[in-house]
Design a protein around this nucleic acid. Structure first.
Lengths: 212, 212
DNA sequence: CAGCAAAGTAGACAGTCGTATACTTCAAAA
DNA sequence: TTTTGAAGTATACGACTGTCTACTTTGCTG
């Protein structure tokens, strides 16, 4: 039975984990009995579904990944100019994080967390998202003046940047607007700067001054 | 007695914590007895120095902060062009992280960790570092074409970016060169992009194409 | 040297934890 | 309807945890 399709204890345990993590816990620090208690199950039921806590962690990550992929796929057909695209995409992505606070917290917390296995799993997932984003940008020629390799590099940076800020976005409503516009700045400056990679610093300064 | 000046149990406990965290632990997950064991002390000695584990965490953070400040202060008088400065500074900062792996891991791990108190402490510390960096850049007029407020914004982003990559830098020797050059790209593109904030996207594209 | 406070130790308390074994419930296949 | 395997429960084990009280050692000060 898949983690997503089950109606029984397995799903209950995973959801209990997400509930606990949202407060002040980390996936790695969750206990088997604690999970069962939160899920309203006998501690030993855990063993019917998972070999140990490590496997549990990986399955929770898988559960979240499935969720995220579905969300991200929606934003494929959006605006057509680069700046327009970044604005809409950023708004969309943060809205997604906002509606999945537990998943967001887990991802941020475990990406640098104590478990190497979870770190690796999350990293390869981020890598995949970044690749998707880069290929989308290249395909639609949103920034044709930037070489593909650079687009990939910037995509990787952007994905990470957004993820880290997502936690603040979720937790601090007052800062949401700021975070969103700063993220747009981040992306636009990154791509604009990359367009000028082949120029010297003085050239760029001259250009900037000339067009004021 | 300050955490830094003690020769006895207090310092031993803090150093034990740093030793444990470097492997696969997080500051928040450390146990009192575990610390004492690693430090070669009786568990109850802990209570002679700290009220509880939360206070201990904060003191460890303070210990690390003291360390970092001393390191960062060294890089004040370096190169004079912006690009030169970013190159040397990035190299220096990563070298610092490399020689303090435990402090690096703690900072990265707790910045998004489960304890709100530690998160807050680390954030205000990063904020201070970012402010210092921005004021330094403004004072020395390294990027005079960018307004002060923007310099502050970019500094905040840069500090965070470097910190996150620092963990990979420490743990994955094979990627060190890549991380260093990508960080330089990040900074240069950010500032170059900011110099063109007042232009439209088509203007920038035209400029980029004209100078190839 | 005496006194005293800080640092460190010893032992015990009630909890929690992960795990193992054995038992019951239940639903679907034979 | 009987069989069978999965899901869930009950109980128990040893190990570890944070905390408490009481005791001993250490080093400094008067």
């Amino acid at each position: 039975m898949n983690a997503l399709t089950g109606t029984g204890g397995k799903l209950k345990l995973i959801q209990a984990a997400l509930r606990l993590i949202t407060e002040t816990r980390s996936l790695t620090s969750l206990g088997l009995r604690e999970l069962a208690r939160e899920a309203g199950l006998n501690p030993n039921t855990f063993y019917r579904h998972f070999k140990n806590l490590d496997e549990f962690g990986l399955q929770v990550l898988g559960y979240i990944a499935e969720d995220m992929k579905a969300g991200v796929r929606e934003l494929r057909q959006m605006a057509d100019s680069s700046e327009q695209a970044s604005h809409d995409t950023v708004a969309f992505v943060y809205r997604y994080f906002l509606s999945n606070p537990a998943a967001t917290t887990v991802a941020v917390r475990e990406l640098h967390g104590p478990s190497p296995a979870l770190r690796r799993a999350l990293e390869s997932q981020l890598e995949a998202s970044a690749r998707e984003m880069a290929e989308d940008i290249i395909e639609r020629q949103l920034v044709s003046a930037v070489p593909p390799e650079t687009v990939h590099e910037i995509s990787r940076m952007t994905i990470r940047y957004i993820l880290f800020r997502a936690m603040d976005y979720v937790e601090k409503p007052a800062q949401r607007e700021t975070i969103q516009t700063e993220t747009e700045h981040f992306i636009n400056r990154q791509f604009r700067g990359a367009m000028l990679d082949h120029l010297s610093q003085t050239d760029v300064e001259r250009l900037a001054l000339k067009h004021t």
